[in-house]
């Protein structure tokens, strides 16, 4: 039930944003929004959110706080790619990381983040939630790092952020 309400509220907010055109919303707009958000919530209640924890507003605030950092990394990533496009220096390889994340959402956030951040691209994920990452510039030092630190070495603080947001 809580899931249903959460989805409905989410849909309703989206509806309000879609239909905002500079003026205050009309009553008919809002009532149509309520009706259709309820329908959309009913359709997607079992699909979207599987755990109640994800509904907590704290996670959302954390997510917003995460964005600037993420954006900074993205900018860095792009200059990295620009460098590699111009010079053509690549040293790629696929490496295995064990981020020790428990649920799917955090893993997804981590995977998508590292896809957009410097030099890494998530290729596969196995049943033990290990990520296989295509790394454009495999440094020789990487092989000497212990297994637990590998994750931190490749993608700095992202696993922590993902853990905080997702779990």
């Amino acid at each position: 039930m809580l899931v249903f309400i959460g989805t409905t509220v989410f849909c309703f907010i989206l509806w309000l944003l879609f239909t905002f055109n500079g003026n205050v919303w009309q009553w008919d707009e809002i009532s149509a929004g309520i009706i259709f958000s309820i329908i959309a919530g009913a359709i997607s209640r079992k699909i979207v959110i599987k755990e109640y924890k994800q509904l907590s507003p704290k996670k959302w605030l954390l997510f917003i706080a995460y964005l600037p950092r993420f954006f900074y990394e993205m900018a860095k990533a792009n200059f990295d790619v620009a460098y590699r496009v111009i010079t053509g220096k690549i040293n790629p390889g696929i490496v295995k990381l064990s981020p020790n994340l428990k649920n799917n959402l955090s893993l997804t956030i981590l995977a998508n983040s590292i896809t957009l951040t410097p030099g890494t691209l998530s290729v596969d994920v196995d049943d033990e939630k290990n990520l296989y990452v295509h790394w454009i510039n495999v440094k020789p030092e990487f092989f000497e790092v212990s297994k637990e630190c590998k994750c931190k070495y490749v993608c700095s603080t992202f696993p922590d952020w993902a853990r905080r947001i997702g779990e």
């Binding site: 790629p92 696929i94 691209l121 596969d124 296989y132 495999v138």
Partner: peptide, 25 residues
């Protein structure tokens, strides 16, 4: 991610790869 995984599974190996820890899996 979907393309990369599909590419790997359909047998497209990374060129000039230094290491491949996914190999065989």
């Amino acid at each position: 991610h979907a393309i990369a995984r599909a590419a790997y599974r359909s047998g497209v190996m990374p060129k000039k790869a230094v290491t491949d820890e996914l190999g065989g899996k």
